[in-house]
Amino acid sequence: MITLGRGLTLFTIVALTISYQIDDIQTTAVAARTVREAAPLILAGLCGLVSERSGIINIGIEGQMLLAAFCGFLGASYAVESMGSTPALLVGVLAAMAVAAVAGLFLAWTSIKLRMDQIIAGTVINIFAIGATSFFFAQGRTMPKVPNWSVPGLDEWPLVGRMLFDHGPFTYLAILVVAIVHVALFHTRWGLRTRAVGEHPSAADTVGVRIFRLRYVNLAIGGALAGLAGMALLQSASVFNRGMTNGKGFIALAVMIIGRWRPGGVLAAAVLFGFFNALQAQLQFKQAFDIPPQFFGMIPFVLTIAVLAAAGLSARPPAAVGQHYETE
């Protein structure tokens, strides 16, 4: 895996350099957009990862993100009437994280207490999110704009400056969270317990891990991450739109699978999908080829299926994912 990762990194650097020599403006635009588009996928993919590593399939990420974007938008939008725009945005972030965490707790509860099928429970979250956000949607509200944090000096660098040092806060946060989840998952007690519960719950139970509590905690953490993913969507859109997740919650699941349930893998896969999206947007914008826009619109989805099929049978999910645990 490490050699594959290094190979891919090297390949990316070489390809970027060559592409930059050919057309610096477009290469910079696509590279910057790739990172921006990857941010919500990283956060949402990590939401799936934290859930599934503890043994619960989360198909409701799409709904969690939508609810989060909705509440984050409304939270910031109402808060700004009585405070500055930065604290108002923080109110939005808290609202987004809270509602998505509640949805995560709901998923854990349906699985643990009600023994509901996890895929159906996730679908309930998705349907509810579409319905509720449309039902309570009020046109004409605005929220304070999420600021752009460009790093002075570094953002002047060719290519790398725009690509890495000229983004909104949630993009930097997404990359930071990858590192945090990686360390937490592989180097802390919580991580060891999470992995044990996802792979072999009865063994974890025997040594005294409180499985259900851990699953509640993980689903809440995952929800909070989905909340940040929702905010990352608002960061680019600046306004809530009906159905604005547009399948990103499901692509995040593909990101998690292709990333093999590892934070670094999620990062790499999210960047790959971010690249698909950025490429599609750029080609469409430039009208580089005489191809109808709808075909560009298909690219991310077709490629998701293709990459999933290629990753295929080698993908190995946590062993206990999707199963209800019986306490003796």
Binding site: I57, R115, D117, Q118, I119, I120, I257, G312, L313, S314, A315, R316, P317, V321, G322, Q323
Partner: peptide
């Protein structure tokens, strides 16, 4: 009981 969530197939 309606159970679908049998993991990710692999």
């Amino acid at each position: 009981d309606m159970q679908l969530a049998s993991g990710w197939g692999a």
